[in-house]
């Protein structure tokens, strides 16, 4: 299952030493809802020793969204060693996300 990212666990998750893909979403965003099952599939398929797939609700976690200047959802941010490396804005297919992850592992 994708990990729920909150202000409390943010530092711990991002600095875990693993590559982290965060899906910024909200319940009123249809494209985000549609991406939901795909993100869960991704979470099940990646090598959990190396990669964490997380979801961040922009409505309850406004501080995180603001920190990374999220102004459009869905947006995926890829973090490596605690730093944002890449972003994907808008709906994307699973393979495209897997390819991105592979590039940073």
């Amino acid at each position: 299952m994708a990990k729920k990212l909150t202000l409390e666990n943010f530092d711990e998750v991002i600095n875990s030493g693993k590559l982290v893909l965060v899906d910024f979403w909200a319940e009123w965003c249809m494209p985000c809802i549609v991406m939901g099952p795909l993100i869960e599939e991704l979470a099940n398929e990646v090598d959990k020793e190396k990669v964490t797939i997380a979801k961040c609700d922009v409505q309850t976690e406004q501080a995180i969204a603001q920190k990374f200047s999220i102004m459009s959802i869905p947006t995926m941010l890829i973090f490596k060693d605690g730093k944002p490396m890449d972003q994907i804005i808008g709906v994307s297919q699973k393979q495209a996300l897997l390819d991105k992850i592979d590039r940073y592992i």
């Binding site: 249809m30 999220i70 102004m71």
Partner: peptide, 10 residues
């Protein structure tokens, strides 16, 4: 943006 329902909130 091209999607008000997605991004209006921001």
């Amino acid at each position: 943006s091209y999607c008000a329902t997605c991004d209006g909130f921001f």
